[in-house]
Design a protein around this nucleic acid. Structure first.
Length: 130
RNA sequence: GCAGUCGGUUAUUCUGUCGCUGUUUCUUUACGGAAACAGAGGAAAGUCCGGACAACACAGAGCAUUGCACUUCCUAACGGAAGAUACUCGCGAGGGUAUAGUAACGAAGAAGAAAAUAACCGCUUUUGAACAUGUUUCAGAAGCAAGGGUGAGAAGGUGAGGUAAGAGCUCACCGGUGUCGGCGGCAACGUCGGCAGCCGUUCGUCUUGCAAGUUGCAAUCUCAUGUAUAUCGGCAUUUGAGGGCUGCUCGUCCGAUGCCGAGGGGUAGAGAGCGAAGAUAAAUGACAGAUUAAAACAGAAUCCGGCUUAUUUACCGACUGCUUUU
RNA sequence: GGCUCCGUAGUUCAAUUGGAUAGAAUGGCAGAUUUCGGCUCUGCUGGUUGUGGGUUCGAGUCCCGCCGGGGUCA
C-alpha cells in the first residue's frame, strides 16, 4: 500500500458501473451538512465523486467541486489506509455533493475528514460485518 | 476632453510543496519506479446549417414534397466580401430587414355606399304630380367619380381650361409604369432625353431555375463473455407471395442458408473508429506567495468549415456628434 | 454525445385559412340555503399565451434567436 504517499492514481478510483450501482442498492450511507458518503465492503479501497447536474447547470462549477473533493480525499486518504492496514478492512466509497451553492475548499475538506472518521468509528463498533 | 459607431488584437505569467492524463526513453523477473516533452476555447456552448467519414440493397426515369432565389467575386458546401434597389431606426458615423417571374386564378374579416365591372348620401338636367308657386316637396328617367364619413389601403397629386354638373376630358408641372436611344458601370442598376397609355395595395396559389436518398461515432467493425442456425405455426414452390430506418410510382435488386407471427434465452466488457490534448466514472488540479488587480463568459468527447448567442480587462486603427482652447 | 417533441388561468384541456373581448371544467372569493359545516344554487375573480424580436392592417397561430421541461438511442 502507498499509504505514506499522498497520491490518487487510476488504481484507487472506483470505475466499474456494477460497483457503483451496488452502493446505491446495498450500500450504507452517512451524512454531513453538505455531503453524503455511501460505501460497501470490498478487497481494496476505491473512491468516486458525484455532483448532480440538478444542482449546478454549469459544467465549470461541477468540475471545480469535483476537483476540490478529489483533492481533499487525496490529502486525507491516509486516514482510511491506516485503518485498512491495521484491521484488514477495505471500502468502496462514493461521495455525493448535496449543497446547492459551491462551497470553498476548506469546508469541503473538513466535512470529508469528518465523514471518513465517522465511517471508521461505525465499523469499529460492528466488527461482525467482516 | 466627454459620449459613441465600425473593424481588429489579447484571454496572464513566474516561484515553491503535493498531485492527474498521454507519448517517448531508461530501469526492473514482474508489480512498479524515474526522467523529458505535450496537455481546453474564442466561443470548446446552442445543435442552427454544411461537409468529411460510416452503414443501409443507392443502375435509371417520372411525379410529389421541402428549401433557396438582386449583381459580381471567393468557397467542397453552408456561408462570406464588395456593391444595387426599397423600407426602416439613429442628429451623425452607421445599424436592421427584404429582393426570381407576373401569363393565369383566388382572397382581403369588422367598419364602410363601394375592397375593383364602385352610385349610399350628394351634384346636374329633365318628366309627372302636389300646393305653400319656391334655390320647395314627392315619384320616376338620364348623366356625373368633384365632395362626404369608414379603413392599413378608396381609383395618381396641385393648378388652369372645360362642362348642365363633372371627369386625364385637355393642358402645365410633379410622382410612378412600360418602352426606345445616349452616357457611366463587368453586372444588378443609375442618369439624361423622346414616346405611350393614365397607372391602386397586400397576401396566397401558380410558373421558372437550382439543390436535396435516409440514418447517424450510442454510426460501424473486431475480440471476449454468453448462447440457440432452438422450438412451433403460417406463406411461397421458379415465378413472384413477401421484403427497404431510402417520400410515391415504374423499373431494378434480394428471395428455401427466405419472409411473417408466436414463444422464450444471453451480454452490459475490451479494442479499433480516435488525432502531436485524447479520456472511457472520463485528466489538465489544490494551497501559499509575487506581478498595483487576475478578474468576465465559460470545460474538448469523431473531426473540419460557418452561423447564432454569452462576456471582462487592456490596447490598436478608421470615423461621427458635442464642448473648450489655439 | 447525437436525434427528436412540447411550453395557454393555481390545475386539466379548447381556440377553424392569421380575424379581434383568448373559452370550458375544476379551484379561489363573496352571497343564498343550514343551528354549524358539507352538498347544491347565484355572482365575481383569475392569462404580458415561457421570453425577446420580425412579417402583417392585425399574431396564441407564421418566421428567427434565447429560456425551461421531457422522450429516445448502446
Amino acid at each position: 500500500m502507498t499509504s505514506g504517499k499522498k497520491s490518487f492514481s487510476k488504481e484507487e478510483r472506483l470505475k466499474s458501473r456494477k460497483e457503483i450501482s451496488r452502493i446505491f442498492k446495498n450500500g450504507i450511507f452517512l451524512y454531513s451538512d453538505s455531503l453524503s458518503l455511501g460505501y460497501t465492503y470490498s478487497e481494496k479501497n476505491k473512491f468516486a465523486v458525484s455532483v448532480p447536474k440538478r444542482l449546478f447547470k454549469s459544467a465549470v462549477v461541477r468540475n471545480k467541486i469535483k476537483r476540490r473533493i478529489r483533492e481533499s480525499y487525496r490529502l486525507n486518504n491516509n486516514i482510511l489506509h491506516n485503518y485498512s492496514t491495521k484491521f484488514g478492512q477495505h471500502f468502496n466509497v462514493l461521495i455525493i455533493y448535496k449543497h446547492n451553492t459551491p462551497l470553498p475548499y476548506q469546508t469541503i475538506r473538513e466535512e470529508l475528514v469528518f465523514l471518513l472518521e465517522k465511517l471508521i468509528e461505525t465499523n469499529k463498533k460492528r466488527p461482525e460485518f467482516l
